[in-house]
Design a protein around this nucleic acid. Structure first.
Length: 375
DNA sequence: AATATCCGCAACCGCTCCGAC
DNA sequence: CGTCGGAGCGGTTGCGGATAT
């Protein structure tokens, strides 16, 4: 004896499915933004030549833009976002697919030291390269190269300086006005855990596994250990911190790295107080062409530059636009860093300059280094 | 020769920004 | 002013080839 409810009788399977869809979409809208496409029904993974041809044909006929419609119009079972990435990172006709030149390599290192992991900004200085290219090249080659040479790829400081800064935190005489950054890779690769006995204050941060490996650094040590508020203006700090979703390490590196290039005493490293600094302006300035004699192709057109400034204006344009005085401050700061960077570039390569700085620190603080670290 | 490990790169993911409505 | 969707960004993952054992 089955008594069917009226609802059960009237609800066809297709209607039930629609209601379910409505319920799900309603739930999704409450939870947050729905995905850009139905990932379960689109192809993922490597692209075939046929798919590439469809994208190329579509772009040739319609141009780029409105990528969500591209899969449908081009006859592709792909997410629009995936199509856009395929185009921008691989299919664009202006892309270079050959290896990076030494000039490009130097430029990436210099720019990374100055602005951190702003791959898109760096890539804009390298015609034919995408942010993905630059990022991959950095992660696979340049980072390791710098580490091998004893340079912390995060701070672009010599390892000895980073470690001495770490020693300062852990109870050794503290050299204020310094910015110290802890890089996990650096720790893992340059700090033999069995050799270094952490001080009491450090023991809580350093944990040795049974195999003698250090772990959990990132959970215990803030990347930014010391920031002198007199030298780093809160506005710059907050702008840098809020400008991107990238990690705090990269944001803070932007602030610290240019200063660390200077071949001066630790105290003198710190630039005069800046009301703000315009990274975009700095990058666009002639002084940022370095002494690499970059090929003319490395230069960016004015249109691109202004677009660049616009797209990054919220985080790169500081008080320069807010008042005449602060504008000159930005210029002054830019000039200061330009001087430091150019000074270094004039005499040596980037790496040479850092190694020189390393030697100076070793000479200035032999006891400090010898007593704290043996590497 | 077979297997394990490493490495580089393409692609994906999640987030933010920004303009249109 | 808030919402929506496109676009861009940086970080991460996974695959496939290269190299080591």
């Amino acid at each position: 004896m089955h008594i069917a409810s009226p609802l059960h009788n009237s609800l066809s399977p297709s209607l039930a499915f629609l209601l379910l869809l409505c319920l799900i979409s309603s739930l999704i809208s409450k939870m947050g933004r729905p995905p850009c496409c139905d990932k379960s029904n689109v192809k993922r993974g490597l692209w075939t030549p046929e798919e590439d041809a469809k994208i190329l044909a579509y772009v040739a006929n319609h141009g780029t833009g409105n990528w969500t419609l591209v899969p449908k119009k081009a006859g592709l079972n792909r997410c629009g976002k995936s199509c856009r990435l395929r185009w921008t990172n691989y299919l664009r006709p202006d892309l270079k697919h050959d290896g990076f030149t030494p000039q490009e390599e130097d430029l990436i290192i210099n720019l990374h030291g100055a602005i951190g992991s702003r791959w898109s900004l760096i890539a804009k200085r390298l015609p034919g390269r995408t942010d993905n290219d630059v990022k991959n090249y950095w992660n696979t080659k340049l980072r390791k190269k710098l580490m091998k040479m004893g340079i912390d790829p995060v701070t672009h400081k010599p390892v000895s300086q980073v470690l001495s800064d770490l020693g300062s935190i852990s109870g050794l005489p503290n050299t204020t006005n310094q910015m110290a950054f802890i890089n996990k890779d650096l720790m893992m690769s340059n700090m033999p855990p069995t050799k270094t006995e952490p001080s009491d204050s450090n023991k809580s941060m350093v944990e040795h596994t049974q195999e003698g490996q250090v772990h959990s650094w990132e959970h215990h040590i803030p990347y930014q250990v010391i920031i002198n508020s007199e030298n780093v203006q809160p506005q710059v700090l907050s702008e840098a911190a809020s400008s991107t979703s990238s990690s705090s390490s990269s944001n803070l590196t932007q602030l610290g790295s240019p200063q660390s290039y200077s071949c001066q005493t630790p105290q003198a490293q710190i630039s005069p107080p800046c009301s703000s600094f315009d990274w975009s302006e700095f990058l666009h300035s002639d002084s940022f062409n370095w002494s690499l004699n970059p090929p003319s192709g490395l230069m960016q057109s004015e249109a691109e530059l202004s677009d660049n400034t616009k797209s990054n204006g919220h985080d790169m344009q500081g008080a320069a636009s807010e008042g005449s005085g602060s504008g000159s401050g930005a210029v002054a700061c830019g000039a200061s860093m330009e001087y430091q960077i150019n000074k270094q570039c004039e005499a040596h390569s980037f790496v040479d300059g850092i190694l020189d700085r390393d030697s100076e620190i070793r000479a200035a603080f032999p006891q400090l280094l010898d007593a704290s670290f043996d590497y």
